[in-house]
């Protein structure tokens, strides 16, 4: 069929060499990412691990390579209250953030109409100011002579007569600072839900609440899991909120790591604290994801 020959020659059939070149391009494109992670994540992590096992030399601040498992024992025995506080504070902050964020994300996803884009910008707006600055602002908001504290005191609602320098202030700060990390994944999950599913649930004898419980909530679970992780993990390692808003009795693991590194120059214990923290969080996350069963969701 000579008439067909030019057509066949014209179509682009990938040649063997072309396929190979494309595969090579893919690997080449991966190099920057892998190099970055290797240099700034894996190397420091390994270095941190070896530091956590270093032994003292006698001179303060100078350590030698070793296998000092005792560093880990010290870290736990000296700082277990900070660990517990970290997880309690960030746990409460995560629950509060979920309770605040879910209705907001739901409203933006289903009811906001033309205001949707504006509301999403407002959710992200706090990021335009620095984290430190915003937390300092909370010192003013929650100050003893501030509006909130005086009002609540007038109503006799505060056990200590104050908010600043109490766990309440730390939790409030954590909740506020990580709230967008809860709202955005929740919004993304809710926005994907077809509103007709809610109508269908109503059509099939579900009251609005049952419809939410049986249809919207399960379908939003991937967002709930992502949001709680993105809030809980950074909140439990945070030390700014505890430093600026809490009293010395409200310190968290982040504070312990910071003090050991910068003040005591006890690098091995600080590293051990970091590693323990990491191990606990990884375990919690693993159990949590298993429990939530998100891998089963669409």
């Amino acid at each position: 069929m000579p008439a067909l020959a030019p057509v066949a020659g014209g179509t682009k059939v990938p040649s063997g060499a072309g396929v190979q070149r494309r595969a090579r391009t893919a690997y080449l494109l991966l190099i920057p990412g892998i190099a970055w992670l290797g240099l700034f994540f894996v190397v420091p992590l390994v270095s941190l691990f070896f530091t956590s096992l270093q032994a003292p030399t006698g001179t303060p601040g100078v350590y030698q390579p070793g296998f000092e498992v005792a560093n880990y024992v010290t870290a736990i025995s000296d700082y277990w209250p900070q660990f517990i506080r970290s997880f309690i504070y960030s746990g409460i902050a995560t629950v509060l953030a979920l309770v605040i964020a879910y209705p907001l994300a739901y409203f933006i996803a289903f009811r906001a109409g033309k205001w949707r884009a504006l509301l999403l910008v407002l959710v992200v707006a706090p990021f335009f100011a620095s984290f430190l600055l915003r937390t300092y602002a909370w010192r003013t908001i929650l100050a003893d002579e501030g509006f909130i504290t005086t009002t609540l005191n007038a109503l006799h609602l505060l056990p200590d007569n104050r908010i600043l320098n109490t766990p309440i202030a730390v939790i409030a700060g954590l909740t506020y600072n990580f709230l967008p990390f809860m709202i955005l994944p929740l919004y993304a999950a809710l926005e994907r839900i077809d509103p007709r599913l809610i109508e269908a649930a109503g059509d099939l004898y579900s009251s609005p609440f049952t419809g939410f419980r049986k249809v919207v909530w399960p379908l939003s679970l991937p967002g709930v899991v992502a949001g709680t992780l993105l809030t809980f993990i950074p909140a439990s390692g945070d030390y700014i909120n505890a430093t600026l808003l809490g009293s010395p009795q409200d310190r968290m693991v982040g504070n312990a790591i910071q003090t050991n590194f910068l003040q005591f120059r006890d690098y091995p214990v600080a590293s051990a604290l970091s590693f323990i923290m990491m191990a606990i969080i990884l375990t919690l996350v693993f159990v949590y994801i298993r429990r939530a069963g998100t891998e089963d969701l669409v």
């Binding site: 649930a201 059509d203 249809v215």
Partner: peptide, 14 residues
């Protein structure tokens, strides 16, 4: 006691 077959079916995906 009225039920609907929706245009895009609206089956519950989960």
């Amino acid at each position: 006691y009225v039920n609907t077959v929706f245009q895009s079916y609206a089956l519950f995906p989960h």
